[in-house]
């Protein structure tokens, strides 16, 4: 890795950084909307299924997929954090990435915790109980 990355690699790297920082937040947003919307609408329509799938499984998917997405984001943030270890006082791009990586690691943990708590609720509560 002594050569400088080309424009393509740079674009990918830059996007990866933001995935690591904000991936969890986005996943959580999707999770809340999908899980809440599914549950609310299906129950309002008086049915415990979505098409052929039982409602709890559909809602479960709205938990599992975002959770996996968040785990990926967490791993990327951790990777950035390790790769930028040699950030010196003066290399401000590295220092900045490293700071964002720390923010990413912790925020992904927070969002993962929220999503997992929602997952526990799916396992424990019957979907339409008022």
């Amino acid at each position: 890795m002594t050569t400088r990355p080309g424009p393509h690699a740079r674009l990918t790297g830059g996007l990866l950084l933001w995935y690591g920082v904000l991936g969890g937040a986005v996943a959580w947003g999707v999770h809340v909307f999908a899980a809440w919307g599914l549950d609310e609408l299906a129950c309002a329509a008086g049915s415990e299924r979505v098409a052929a799938v039982p409602l709890w499984q559909a809602v479960g998917l709205a938990v599992v997929i975002p959770a996996l997405f968040t785990v990926g984001s967490l791993l990327v943030a951790a990777l950035v954090w390790r790769r930028t270890r040699r950030a010196g006082e003066d290399d401000r791009a590295f220092g900045r990435s490293r700071m964002l990586a720390v923010v990413g690691v912790w925020s992904n943990l927070l969002f993962l915790a929220i999503i997992v708590l929602g997952g526990v609720a799916v396992l424990v509560l019957p979907p339409c109980q008022g």
């Binding site: 393509h8 674009l11 830059g14």
Partner: peptide
Amino acid sequence: GVVAAATGAEALSTEL
């Protein structure tokens, strides 16, 4: 090599 380049410290610190 492509993956390594995109996940190197420098690429990950691209300003975007």
